[in-house]
Each structure stands twice: as structure tokens, then as C-alpha cells.
């Protein structure tokens, strides 16, 4: 922290919002953040493959609650519908179709686990230091909601309608591609393994 941080923090404390006197929304946000992070860590370390997918549900559902706390209600419900409703189900189907074991699988992690731990811890330390130092005197004004469905839909279908249509074409292309890739060909039955 530089020398100019302390007066700014003190001024923020006097104006009724400070790090040491968190508001109710901040406390709820931090509690849900602990749940999200714990579920995410369990998701990437669990030896049960199906449990990992279910921990992913907890993490993404907690993120939807965080979106609600940030007054982005439409994003929160889209997150629940698409992530929890379809993406996790797709992942569970993927686990089922690749014959993942039901019990604990000892080879869920590869041999470069220590390297991954070092890399991710270094990245976390660097980025947390940077983010905390950059935004320590920045506050979000949550009194006026900024994610209501009507305002978001208006800007989506006025300013962003061309990217929206391009995205729909992209989704169609991705769907057709997935069907073409996963279609069973004739040489699969001859050369494939099952």
C-alpha cells in the first residue's frame, strides 16, 4: 500500500462506507463467496467424478446469488437456466458416456499436480495484489439497480442486436458441428474400440 492509501481509506470510513464496517450486502456477498470458492476447490480436487460435477452446480449457483447481490437479476436467472440447467447436465452426460467410475478414481489427477499448484498460487498472489491495490478505494453504488430485465432487453435489442444475431448463427453452427462430429460413421464400427 502506498502512502496515499490511508487518508483515502479514512475519508471513506467517514462517509459511512469502509472496509472495517461492511454493509449487510457485503457480508452476505462474502459468505456466499466463501461457499463458491469452497465448492470450486472441491470441484477441482474431488476424486469422485460425479461429485465434482455436483460441486460445480454449487459453485455456479452461488455465483448466481452473487449476481443477484450485484443487482444483475437477469444475468442471475440466465445463469441458473443455462449453466445449472443445461451445461452441468451435458457434463454429467459426458461423464456417463465416457464410462466414468461411480466410486473414487485414483487417477483423476495427472502427475503435474505440484506444478499446477505452484502456477495457480503464483497467479492468485499476483492478481490479488494487483486487484486489491488498484481498486481499494472504489465502491459500487447498489442503490439504483443496474440490471433490470427491461433495461437490459432494451439495450440488447437496440444497441447490440447485430452481435446478438451473429451469436445465434454461431450457436447454430456449433450445434451442427457437434452433431456432425458425434455422428457415428461407418468406419467407426470397423476400427473403433467400442
Amino acid at each position: 500500500m502506498s502512502a496515499g492509501a490511508l487518508p483515502a481509506l479514512l475519508a471513506a470510513e467517514e462517509s459511512g462506507r469502509g472496509v472495517l464496517s461492511p454493509s449487510g450486502v457485503e457480508i452476505v456477498f462474502l459468505l456466499v463467496a466463501v461457499v463458491v470458492l469452497g465448492a470450486a476447490i472441491l470441484c477441482v480436487t474431488s476424486r469422485h467424478l460425479v461429485h465434482a460435477a455436483l460441486y460445480l452446480v454449487v459453485a455456479l449457483g452461488g455465483l448466481a446469488v452473487e449476481y443477484l447481490l450485484l443487482t444483475a437479476e437477469f444475468i442471475a436467472w440466465v445463469q441458473v437456466l443455462i449453466y445449472l440447467g443445461s451445461v452441468v447436465v451435458l457434463l454429467l452426460f459426458g461423464l456417463m458416456l465416457t464410462r466414468a467410475p461411480i466410486g473414487p478414481s485414483p487417477d483423476a489427477d495427472s502427475a503435474n499436480r505440484p506444478v499446477a499448484l505452484v502456477v495457480s498460487l503464483a497467479a492468485a498472489a499476483t492478481l490479488v495484489t494487483l486487484v486489491v491495490d488498484a481498486f481499494r478505494t472504489t465502491w459500487i453504488d447498489l442503490d439504483t439497480p443496474h440490471g433490470r430485465s427491461d433495461a437490459l432487453g432494451e439495450s440488447l435489442f437496440r444497441a447490440w442486436v447485430l452481435p446478438f444475431e451473429a451469436l445465434s448463427v454461431l450457436l447454430l453452427a456449433a450445434l451442427v458441428g457437434a452433431i456432425v462430429i458425434s455422428r457415428a460413421r461407418r468406419d467407426d464400427s470397423e476400427e473403433g474400440r467400442g
Binding site: V36, A40, V44, L49, T98, D107, N112
Partner: peptide, 17 residues
């Protein structure tokens, strides 16, 4: 959360994970 995901990408062995 990003760093947890980074660890998972580097450390996991199963492609679905």
C-alpha cells in the same frame, strides 16, 4: 475463482474434468 479453474485445467487428467 479463475486461479482455481487454472489449477483444475493444469492438474486434472480426465478431459471432462
Amino acid at each position: 475463482l479463475f486461479c482455481v479453474g487454472l489449477y483444475g485445467v493444469l492438474a486434472r487428467r480426465n478431459t471432462v474434468l
